[in-house]
Nucleic acid binder design. Structure first.
Lengths: 149, 149
DNA sequence: AGCTTGCTTGGAGTGCACTCCAACGTTTTA
DNA sequence: TAAAACGTTGGAGTGCACTCCAAGCAAGCT
């Protein structure tokens, strides 16, 4: 049962992009999408509920059938997630996509703000790297001279 | 009342290092530490409860009196927090510090693992930057040619 | 002495992003 | 055709990192 995969979505770590999708199809079941994206079925349903997906097709019995477009969107959402953008902002973006071209400006702004945040975060991380290296070197020194007096 | 400051600690954003501490003192009240670190008093007490602080001194009436050493530690903890290290790992590190030199090896390892995580995260963010730039350029193009046919 | 402001505690509550459950219907495989 | 695997739903639960609360003691000022 795939439902029970933990998949610890570290909010700051990559989803394990498992299989690449086999081109030549355009209707995927939820478990296929799970395999392609590394998201859980729970998360996919939840994304739909909160409005983070464009309307997902259903089979005649009501089961979800995802398209290649949906997979592309999920790949993009995955990238946004990696930026650290809150899900609420992604939903806003998705809503703007649904509204059409009139929201181009606002979408660009949201993305630019995100871009600035990413740059700031990278700078922050590089700062911490300096501190980490400093400490690590201290421990290395301590090992090299374990009984200096 | 300082207690009610929201201070939205974004887990991926810098604390607003407010005042630099005035050298020449070695016993600070909790509200002074709040001013120096940007953490809330709640968070400072919580850090102590979970074992993330070395034993904090108390006044004769039981109020906390933080030292410069405590402030240095909090600065370091702030850096670790920026790396995205989970609090549980920081507590582990703090415990090792309390154990003494016998844990130098393990501490270095933890820091090295963290360093690798930071490098990976930076790479990830740089990846998202490419996607973001691609999209932003698309919207810029759309603005430059608003009525192409 | 009275008032205001600050500090104490244990425990409960919050927000985010999932994560899981029960109960049931559908599809695929043997 | 029967069993096993997969799909559906609303709503409840989880884990993290805080964040807040109530009730009460303490310190400083007038």
């Amino acid at each position: 049962m795939i439902e029970s995969t933990p998949a610890r979505t570290d909010l700051c770590k990559a989803a394990p992009r498992a299989h690449p999708r086999p081109e030549g199809q355009d209707r995927y079941t939820i478990s296929e999408v799970v395999a392609f994206t590394g998201l859980t079925a729970h998360t996919l349903r939840w994304y739909e509920r909160i409005g983070l997906m464009p309307h997902v097709d259903r089979s005649h019995t009501g089961q979800r059938r995802f398209t290649n477009r949906d997979l592309d969107w999920l790949t993009f959402v995955g990238k946004l997630r990696l930026t650290g953008m809150p899900v609420a902002d992604m939903v806003t973006y998705a809503e703007m996509v649904r509204e059409g071209e009139s929201t181009f400006e606002a979408r660009a702004e949201l993305l630019q703000r995100t871009r600035r945040d990413v740059l700031a975060r990278i700078a922050e991380l590089q700062d911490t790297l300096a501190v980490l290296d400093h400490k690590i070197e201290f421990y290395a020194d301590a090992r090299r001279a374990p009984e200096r007096f």
